[in-house]
């Protein structure tokens, strides 16, 4: 037959632009390619924004209503009924800072963890660096976070104007972008590890929402670290989000306990999770269509 290879196969000396092979190495992350698709990432961000609140009456106001309601509920239940301490801060501000900061991490994790399952149809039809999807989620969540954090700052100014003693810590405020990136990294790392595993085991999807909620109770969202009995503090401090939330409060509200060692721990943790996540993601993206 004409199609049979003619042996020996004559290899011409040619340069190829692309070689499609069974498996790339674990470390071949192709981040340069992700950069070339930056327009796509931005368009995904735009798509998510435009489409999310289409045909809703309140539109983007929902960005504010969600954290506001959560804060009110937390203030009522944990502050007034359970009477948890808040490091001497107004309860409302304490819970709002915790909620807004935590929800950025939680949303990043929840949404990126569905990357493969939610985009199976798209991924099955066309190639682009799959990392573009979780990255776009990080960015659109960051915009949400900025809006919500802006609301928090307005409330803070209101409280200050009312005469409440609050001492923001300026050097730490300047450091806060690093904290945001750390949260993004943690959310991305955990998220893409989970999304890679859910291509085979859908069971994990149910665990994620539950797990994230559990993790919230192991972070100083509804209580300050200082209120935790010493012998349980290690559990809270093992959570890489703990030092980030505490540092945020310390920066903008002037209370809380921040140790450089803990921040360094969170930072290292983030690097490890993100690196592991990218390697697994890179591995899975090449074959997930066969198992999803």
């Amino acid at each position: 037959m004409l199609s049979k290879p003619h042996l020996p196969f004559t290899e011409q000396d040619e340069s190829w632009d692309l070689i499609i092979e069974p498996q790339r190495s674990w470390l071949d992350l192709r981040l340069g390619e992700v950069w070339r698709y930056k327009d796509l990432i931005l368009l995904f961000v735009q798509r998510d924004f435009v489409s999310l609140y289409k045909q809703t009456v309140l539109g983007p106001l929902w960005y504010l209503i969600q954290p506001l309601l959560t804060t009110i509920i937390f203030t009522f239940i944990f502050g007034n009924i359970a009477s948890l301490p808040t490091d001497g801060l107004p309860k409302f501000l304490f819970y709002m800072s915790g909620t807004v900061v935590w929800s950025y991490f939680a949303d990043c994790l929840n949404k990126t963890s569905q990357t493969f399952v939610n985009n199976a149809n798209l991924f099955g039809k066309v190639y682009f660096p799959r990392l573009a999807v979780p990255l776009s989620i990080l960015i659109s969540n960051m915009i949400t976070f900025a809006i919500q954090f802006g609301m928090f700052l307005i409330f803070e100014l209101y409280f200050i104007a009312q005469g409440t003693e609050i001492h923001p810590n300026w050097p730490w405020i300047l450091f806060s972008p690093v904290l945001i990136l750390m949260m993004a990294g943690l959310g991305l790392g955990f998220g893409i590890i989970i999304s890679s595993l859910t291509t085979k085991y859908r069971d994990l999807r149910f665990l994620v929402t539950f797990g994230v909620q559990l993790l919230m109770y192991a972070a100083p969202v509804i209580y300050p670290v200082s209120s935790v009995p010493a012998k349980f503090q290690w559990i809270i401090l093992a959570n890489p989000m703990t030092s980030i939330i505490e540092a945020f409060r310390y920066a903008f509200l002037g209370v809380g306990t921040v140790y450089m060692g803990q921040l360094l721990y969170s930072f290292t943790f983030m690097l490890l999770v993100m690196f592991a996540g990218m390697m697994i993601f890179n591995r899975v993206e090449q074959i997930f269509m066969d198992t999803v």
Partner: peptide, 30 residues
């Protein structure tokens, strides 16, 4: 189209490759 990887063997390509396995891939209705 690089949607899935082969089990063995390889494909060498010269130039940019684009695939059209479906029309309107990724269109968002809204």
């Amino acid at each position: 189209s690089r949607v899935t990887a082969p089990t063995s063997g390889k494909v060498k390509v010269k130039g940019r490759i684009a695939s059209l396995l479906e029309v309107g891939t990724g269109f968002h209705p809204d």
